[in-house]
Design a protein around this nucleic acid. Structure first.
Length: 289
DNA sequence: CACGAGACCTGTTCGC
DNA sequence: TGCGAACAGGTCTCGT
């Protein structure tokens, strides 16, 4: 499910409350104390062992809640508790007496009668408890919405490697937080073909990609993320998709039917007219003769 | 270094 | 209607 805008929405809701879930507003868990908890699917816990986790967690307070890339970071008195939701995870606060939600893999009982629930149908999500969050987050690339991240930085990073744009945007060491939806949306807004080679972009094209990336992420956050299928609920950015999940439907710029190809085993959506591919701009795979 | 395939998992939707 | 295939917001590891 979640990419940067969805994870940002989830983190904000945990910090400030106010996420609408089944018609109810979820509460903030900032400042609450961890009393106990349960791990219902062992492999959801990446680090440390369950026994060490339950030895360390009780008594710590949730002092801060932030997002880095697609990670949610809870800062506790002595540790950091990190969550990655991967494809189908979600994280939210509920009143304690409630029945456990479907696919609950981990929960924390908190002071004030609240409960933090980590639900994850596909079991890909992971949890870490560590004193040093950098051991988990250390390889992430820059935050695309950080004001210190400039178009010149992006140009430099694109030209430091020689890769197709789409897989590069999905590479979390290149930029942190972009996933399949926002990569396709950004490339369309920037009018760049997903197979374009990173080293082929002019400064003007990089400027477009930089602005487009930030624009779609900001718009995603403003709309509380995108809700598709049964997984993440609460956002409505899906109503603004330009290309994602729109195969055969008209491009919003020119009306040409949107096409779908596979790039690095990911479904990739683009407008063949607005995002043309010049032979000189992509890798030549086979040398004749 | 870059790329593709396979793995990790379960649920929903599509096509015949 | 039924049933298997395809597909899904992500990332890691391995082989070429």
């Amino acid at each position: 499910m979640p990419e940067l805008p969805e994870v940002e929405t989830i983190a904000r809701a945990l910090r400030q409350g106010g996420r609408l879930l089944d018609g109810r507003q979820t509460p903030s868990i900032l400042g609450l104390e961890i009393q106990s908890g349960k791990l219902l699917w062992e492999r959801s816990l990446a680090q440390p062992t369950p026994s060490e986790l339950w030895q360390r967690l009780p008594g710590q307070r949730i002092q801060d809640i932030n997002r880095r890339g697609k990670f949610i970071v809870l800062s506790l008195n002595r540790d950091h508790l990190l969550f990655h939701l991967r494809m189908s995870g979600d994280l939210y606060a509920l009143p304690q007496p409630d029945v456990l939600p479907d696919y609950t893999r981990f929960l924390l009982d908190l002071s004030g009668g609240l409960r933090l629930v980590f639900a994850d149908a596909r079991k890909f999500g992971r949890i870490w408890l560590t004193q040093d969050p950098q051991t988990v987050l250390g390889n992430l690339g820059p935050e695309p919405l950080d004001e210190r991240f400039t178009a010149a930085d992006l140009f430099e990073r694109l030209h430091a490697r020689r890769r197709q744009l789409k897989p590069l945007l999905l590479d979390q060491t290149f930029l942190a937080g972009i996933g399949n939806i926002y990569a396709d949306e950004a490339l369309h807004l920037a009018r760049l073909h997903p197979l374009r080679l990173s080293t082929s972009l002019s400064m003007e094209e990089v400027q477009r990609l930089w602005a487009a990336t930030r624009h779609v992420l900001e718009e995603g956050i403003r709309r509380n993320g995108a809700s598709i299928d049964w997984v993440y609920r609460g956002g409505d950015f899906q109503n603004s998709f330009r290309v994602y999940h729109r195969v055969g439907q008209p491009c919003p710029l020119c009306g040409t039917p949107i096409e779908r190809i596979q790039v690095g085993q990911r479904g990739t959506h683009f407008c063949p007219y607005c995002q043309p591919l010049d032979r000189n701009e992509t890798e030549i795979r086979s040398i004749p003769g």
